[in-house]
Amino acid sequence: MYQLIKKDLLMQKKTLMFALLYLIFFTFAIAKNEPIGLTIGIMIVTYMLALGSASLEEKNDSDIMLLSLPIKKKSIVLSKYLSVYIIATVVFLFNYLFYLVVHTFSIPLEILPITYVGFAGAIIAVTIFSSISFPLIFKLGYAKSRIINLVLFFGLVFLSAPVTEAINKNENLAVKQWLQKLVYESSNIEKTLVIVLPLFAILMISYKLSLTFYTKREF
């Protein structure tokens, strides 16, 4: 499993450099949009790398090689899901590193604040994205699912900021009241039940779908 995740990153050496530049750009360019800025920054870079490896795999027609090795299809599918969380965590740590550097050396730059809400948002976002994208990729391949994935991705990215803003401004919105109640009045167990469990269920359904599609797919 570790080898499969490692090769996803190794074969994207050039993209990793771009990813770092994107990261620096997001850290400073969207510094004002806290905490959604951190969420968007982590999500975009993670998504770029996750889809990047799928694209290179298709370019090399490497499923034929991978599936000729003694590797279980389950390991291949699971490694894709795990790699998303590993990438997201590394991206977060980079953000944190920039934050520390700017603060430690009192550099006069406005930087993306590091918040748990921002990171949690990113984890929720990458979970939703990978839960939608991976089954499509395992079923149709990268190229055929690309348009659907891009529409979903940009749709959600561009909608996330105005939707958050709308929720912030409108005090009477039922969703906002429910969210406020959840954040300020609910216990940790309730929060977990409401957010983590449905998310986990989505992830599990997505993983099972991906595995079924990949097992049935012919090369």
């Binding site: 090769k7 190794l10 074969m11 050496k13 290179l56 795999e57 090399n60 490497s62």
Partner: peptide, 16 residues
């Protein structure tokens, strides 16, 4: 035809 990852070196591919 080659189905190995073209972006990896011979050593990296073997290690994988």
């Amino acid at each position: 035809s080659n189905h190995f990852y073209e972006e990896l070196t011979v050593q990296e591919m073997k290690n994988m």
